[in-house]
Computed example of a mutant assay.
Amino acid sequence: MQQPSQRVKLTSLSSKGGCGCKIGPADLAQVLRELPPGVPNPDLLVGLDTNDDAGVYRLTDELALVQTVDFFTPIVDDPYAFGQIAAANALSDVYAMGGKPLTALNIVAFPIHKLDKSILADILRGAGDKVKEAGATLVGGHSIDDNEPKFGMAVTGTVHPGRIRTNAGAKPGDRLLLTKPIGVGILTTSIKKDQLSAEEIERVTRVMATLNKTAAETMERFGVNACTDVTGFGLLGHASEMAKGSGVGLTLYRPNVPVLPRVRELAEAGFVPGGTKNNFGHVRDGVEFAESIDTIGQWILCDAVTSGGLLIAVPEAEARALLAALREAGVEAEAIGEATADRPGTIRVLDERWTEFEGV
């Protein structure tokens, strides 16, 4: 992790708090309902209908564009790391759709007369290094002078029209794999309150800055039915979209869900972002929790994530091999649940350890 050019607590400059959260799912759904329907286009293969990670537009029978955009306020104080995280987060949507990033555009809002210009340079350098790591090309961007720093990217990728991974293809019997631990929102909120050690900040930063490139390339060899990345709506929010879009029920095993260290301790101390609680309010009617899972445990499963992992639905016959391949490639993957034919569109969270994948 690079050292910032100027010792500025970037997270303190954000009026929104430490998670860089999206507009809440309930508020966003209300806004989108007011929009007129778009003009039907047979080449728009993935649009707004399934709440997917990115849009997909067919150019030819062999080639489609994947397009996405994401930006947010600082969630760590190191500007280089912030740039890395923001870039990894934006690139993730292309990976979740089964695509390969092609080009990226910077989106910059920065108080250019209040903060040293070297801070912005470090943000852009961090982002540029992640774009290079992804094998994509930075082609430009747009900037404005703003009181609150914000950064992100618009990313274009490519995918074969027949190999698109959406969040709406899960089948009964599929196993669910998750490729990064959760708890990021609670930890980044804790960063703003000076509750984490340097080592803990480095750990959560490394998780957020890790591209989903390896996980996406690994799953290409398998018959994955559905995929989404876990970001601002939290694990249960994105799982709910998969359940509803696919018309399946999901069963998750809470002890199998990977959670970053100290997340529960910090949540109990009150460092839970508003976005996490909004996520919980949005999904709670569609989720049945085991009685032994308390409110803190429920909030953690809804925690608003920045640059999270992929939630992958893969047929049972291929699940063990995919999990093993992901781990062999260095991905922190875990099997956390399964898709069922009963109770479509809903989620059941059990408080028992799932032993099917022990020994993988």
Rank of each mutant, 00 (worst) to 15 (best):
R221I: 06
G234F: 03
G157L: 04
G270D: 11
A170M: 00
D49C: 09
D294G: 10
K213H: 08
K192Y: 15
E34C: 14
D53F: 04
A26M: 11
P101L: 09
F72Y: 05
L138W: 13
Q2K: 15
V331T: 05
Q2S: 15
M1H: 04
R33Y: 00
P42A: 15
I191F: 10
G157D: 06
E217H: 08
F110L: 10
E358C: 08
R254N: 13
V349Y: 07
R320Q: 13
A333H: 13
G237A: 08
G337P: 01
A170V: 13
S143T: 09
A335K: 11
E200M: 14
G99T: 03
I164M: 05
R284I: 05
A335Q: 05
E316Y: 03
A64Q: 02
L115D: 10
G345D: 08
P258G: 03
T218M: 13
K213E: 09
N225M: 03
R343E: 12
L120V: 11
T137C: 04
G232Q: 01
V259L: 02
P74N: 14
A339W: 10
I85P: 14
L32T: 12
E318Q: 06
A168D: 08
K180M: 12
D52I: 11
P4E: 09
P111M: 01
N51Y: 06
N256M: 06
P79Q: 05
G183R: 03
E268V: 15
D52M: 11
L266D: 09
R33H: 08
P315A: 06
A335G: 05
L323D: 00
S292V: 00
R348G: 08
V46M: 00
S197E: 13
A325M: 07
A215Q: 07
V159Q: 04
A321P: 01
F289T: 13
I293H: 02
T346C: 11
E356T: 07
L48Q: 03
Q195P: 10
A64Y: 06
G24R: 02
K171A: 00
E34W: 00
A134T: 10
V184P: 15
A341C: 02
P161H: 06
G83F: 00
G38T: 04
V46N: 02
T231Q: 01
A81S: 12
T295L: 12
E358L: 04
G20K: 11
G286H: 14
T188A: 06
G183M: 06
P273F: 07
L105H: 02
P36C: 10
T179V: 07
K171V: 07
E202W: 15
Y80E: 07
N147V: 15
M208D: 03
T68S: 01
L65I: 14
L176R: 08
K171F: 00
L13G: 07
E217G: 05
A335R: 02
